[in-house]
Design a protein around this nucleic acid. Sequence first.
RNA 1: GGGCGAAUAGCUCAGUUGGUAGAGCGCCUGCCUUACACGCAGGAUGUCGGGGGUUCGAGUCCCUCUUCGCCCACCA
Length: 931
Amino acid sequence: MPISEPTESVPAPGQLPAQYDPATTEPAIYERWQQAGCFTADAARTTRLSGDREPYTLVMPPPNVTAILHVGHGLNNTVQDVLARWARMKGRETLWLPGTDHAGIATQNVVEKQLAKEGLTRQDLGREKFVARTAAFVAETGGVILQQLKAIGASADWSRTAYTFSPELSVAVREAFVRLHERGLIYKGHRVIHWCPRCLTSLSDEEAEPLETTGALYHVSYPLADDPSRSLVVATTRPETMLGDVAVAVNPNDERYQSLIGKHVVLPILDIPIPIVADDYADPEFGTGVVKITPAHDANDFDVGRRHGLAMPVVIDEHGVMGEVADAAGRVPAALRGLDRFEARDRVVEMLRAAGRLEKREVHQHNVRHCYRCDTVVEPRLSDQWFVRMATLAEPALAGVRTGRIRILPEKWIGVYEHWMSNIRDWNISRQLWWGHRIPVWYCTECDPPNDVIVSREDLTACPHCGCPVVQDEDVLDTWFSSWLWPISTLGWPNEASSDLRAFYPTDVLVTAPEILFFWVARMIMAGYAFMGDAPFHSVYLHGTARDTQGRKMSKSLGNGIDPLDVVQLYGADALRYTLVAGMGLGADVILDPADIEKSFSTGRNFATKLWNIGRFLLSNVGADPVRPFAELDADELGRDDAWILDRLDVAIRECDRSIGPMHPLRDTWSDEELNSGLRLNEYAETARRFVWNELADWYLEAIKTRLLTPGDDQQVARAVLVHVFDGALRLLHPIVPFVTEALWQKLPGSVDGTFLATSSWPTASARTEPSVAGGEFELIQQIVEAMRRVRSEYGVPPGKLIDAFVVAAPHVRRVLAEESTLVGRLARTSLTFVDAAPPGAAANVILAGGTELVVPLEGLIDVRKECARLQTDLAGLEKQLASLEGRLANPGFVGRAPAHVVDAERAKGDEWRARRELLRTRIESLCGQA
RNA sequence: GGGCGAAUAGCUCAGUUGGUAGAGCGCCUGCCUUACACGCAGGAUGUCGGGGGUUCGAGUCCCUCUUCGCCCACCA
């Protein structure tokens, strides 16, 4: 009995509005979930503490705090929500931990843009004011995306919302830095790093994105100092850097240049001598085999410079402008000073050409690195930065994947992960930004090394060695230095007594996009091992990207995105979620048409509507009357339709379980069989859809209509089964379409006020593994109905016209059909007459599996000649197939080697076809004479 | 330059131990059949990218070619 009060818009008790209105329904339902605390996890209830429930934990990849929801977020969080809701219904103490990332560069850029509109720079404000302003901006507008996630139904535990820049997580960041420093894994390095001249900060290798670019390769001749008539030709894509050249290198094994090693060439434009050094870095195969060495502006040249003890003049400043920065006296001519690096490039080329030093210029394809935040061309630049030594951290992280402690899906990413991990490079973690975690390093001006550098968990004002004032390092940490701690810091680390950390770590599945496999996932795994001694999760689920119909990634800049909230507004969150889940194979991209939202999401919208209408049907038939508990029904009370749909429900449950599960590895590590299993959300969605739509709605509902309208015991049985099966369907579907299922479930007879589908149990298949006999008999009825519908359609029988059909069938088939003739009559508008042999005369003829023959005399609709031709064609086709089949069965290779069940199935098919052939021949003979 | 992945119905995609191809959307025909036209019933459509091989049998395994995509990389 529905306990919850129907709202005023509902017409009558036990009734639903004709139209499902997600726009009003969804927010109300979400509100009730939240008020009831459906999504709040309780550490104490987990088995890792004092409780009896297995934990299930997901940490949400934190969106940038200033982000607004796009389809990518929608995709990512829908997947997570499906898993979280599924686990919750499976009885796990489920924690889906949400939060945001302070996003150093990104957020700073946003605020700097605002300042620019006021004609200000961050330097105008000064560090303290700028940080305060950014913090205020974040406090004011940040976290919008978390509200938006609620609109798509995200069942995260908002009471635990985290933020990478919160005081708590800042403690974790500092602790991690200090511990790594104590372990000798953090060092300050003077080297060439990627520098963004716009953001004015260094970038990690991952943050400097290579972009295929068509540029030019300039060949420049450097005359020999002692013989100006001879010269060495070097090739460069960045001629302006030649101002910083300190040598040219040749390969020591390159015979062409053996005699020149140790001599000098004259650097054009500057007219200064620079040495010819021998270094393996020079590739004899490339160009002329001579390479110019610019240690301050190229990472490789830097290495060469170090090997040969060369000077490292910096000729491009932090803004990407030509200037004598360090160790570069006299190196930038007045004509070039102050020029942007690209203008300078053109000017240098002109100067070289004028001096007759430009040998040639050729078009050249190469990768140019760009800042991942502002797209500016990155400039390699010599500077002091903090680095994390990665090799030792990578070892356990690599082993974790290799041993199956962690699995990565789809599996193709495992190789990518292993390659990166095995060739890992040190991580530049310092950024010359203001928005971020200040590096916990202080410098004392009085103490001598190594006491002058103090790494501390606490803020320092005085040197612990001499008591002198100290100055904190100006730099902040890479945003990812806080992100990589996310699975541990959000649970309370470094406080190892934290109940959340003990209850929910390690977490279970990490759901994210492959783009951040290195940025984030790999580093989280390393941090998990480094700080907690265990992997942060057992599964990494890498999903695809949302793209437009041209295959382009949806992005703000391209303007080809779809606003998920538009979809929610128009068709509801369920429509959005269902469409995304159903359309996404494991790791496959989702293609959507931004120009046609309706087309893109009609699948989901239609499905939600279908569910709603099934609910309406149920409620209008069952009404507010009490319904017999399903458990009280006896098997012999069930109709064939009941037995069938219960069989199908079992199958659906098992298939759904297989598609999503297993929830975690059976043992500590994933077995080979488990490694690639589960997380097929699209298969799960399709199974559930097929069950609800093609089985429950198309057949069961149609079959029981009469029973539902006829008062009596059988009506009660049908009602009980209907309610039970629909209840099961709603449970199966809830993780994908939580709102409409919750709305309907609340109205279901027997629902108890204050209970939620969201926290109800996942359905369990019955113990039976074989389909029931009665259920199988229902399939016989379906075959007849489908055959008759085909006949009707093929011969153009008017829809309203009742037709007669003669049935020749085995006794048990005849018995079933006789008992269900009313049902067949209604579903196919056919009246069945049982005969021992097909009557002669013009008639449509259908032969079903099991040798059942349908003969349908259709006055005026059957043309004997055409019918004969059709039968002949059928026979010819059958003969052909049969010949092929018999050939196979006569083949010793097939019979001997194919699995027994396959051979048996083929034999059965052969018997079936032969019987059908006989029937066809007989029929042709009687209808068409000797033809 | 290395490595990986993809190519299946008009479109977007499933297809998990090799056994003669499926869904959604679209299309065609007929239906406003008292839950649903965001629906119902029926239907058409594929040399599973090309070629070769293994096998009794290949969308599925191997080789090769073509076309796309992704990742990595210090050839200036």
